[in-house]
């Protein structure tokens, strides 16, 4: 038995699958393609799978990770093909690999890169991109952040890197790196900051898509 990791994407209709449901969906997909994975023992035996840094329900992502254990000596040939042939719409495995020496630790994930899409009723307001870039170029942006310990004013710039905001196909696209893990900040706070500091703009559509996750020194997680 050895530890293994799958990198997968979760897009389209699958973005509405919640964390717990995603685990069930993965377990059943594994069973459908007879993937030789380890089951927990004891009272409630189940296929052991663990989702690293689960996305919020409604977010899509193309750099997601699932950890599990193989019962075989090596990763079965065609493992990626096998699982992709039994996934529901929107889930897609890119890579399945053994974690030698335990691999990178989930706890070392420190940053996520998101693509945020903002839409408006009608045209993109003329100065929106300029104003948004100016807002996020500041060193201090105070925002009320909610956590398990309650609400607190924080400088969101400490939890993110300066975003790139551009225009594409009639919507605004914001490419941003935000804190993950211990200094987690949801990309929704960028939308909140716009609503608070640039109230003249009325964003009607917002979508969040995770592009990548990194360790503290911005090495791509694997």
């Amino acid at each position: 038995m050895f530890k293994a990791r799958m990198r997968f994407s979760k897009t389209g209709r699958a973005k509405y699958i919640s964390h717990l449901d995603l685990m069930h969906t993965m377990q059943r997909a594994m069973a459908r393609c007879n993937m030789p994975i380890w089951f927990t023992e004891g009272f409630n035996q189940h296929a052991y799978v663990s989702v690293a840094l689960p996305l919020s329900t409604g977010y899509s992502g193309e750099y997601e990770f699932l950890d599990f254990n193989f019962l075989t000596e090596t990763v079965p040939e065609n493992a990626v093909k096998m699982i992709n042939s039994v996934f529901p719409e929107g889930l897609y495995a890119q890579e399945i690999y053994a974690l030698s020496d335990g691999g990178m630790k989930i706890a070392n994930i420190a940053w996520s890169r998101y693509k945020i899409t903002w839409g408006f009723d009608g045209e993109i307001p003329q100065d929106f991109i300029k104003d948004a870039n100016e807002l996020f170029a500041k060193d201090d942006i105070q925002i009320l952040k909610r956590s398990k310990r309650g609400e607190k004013m924080v400088n969101m710039k400490e939890l993110m890197k300066t975003p790139e905001i551009t225009q594409k196909d009639g919507v605004v696209v914001c490419n941003v790196v935000t804190g993950a893990g211990n200094k987690n900040m949801s990309p929704e706070y960028l939308t909140k900051a716009i609503k608070e500091y640039l109230p003249q703009y009325n964003i009607t559509d917002e979508a969040y898509h995770r592009l990548c996750v990194y360790t503290d020194d911005m090495v791509e997680f694997r």
Partner: peptide, 10 residues
Amino acid sequence: KPARYVGGEW
């Protein structure tokens, strides 16, 4: 529970 409104299941 938006997942119940989108279809696309296996």
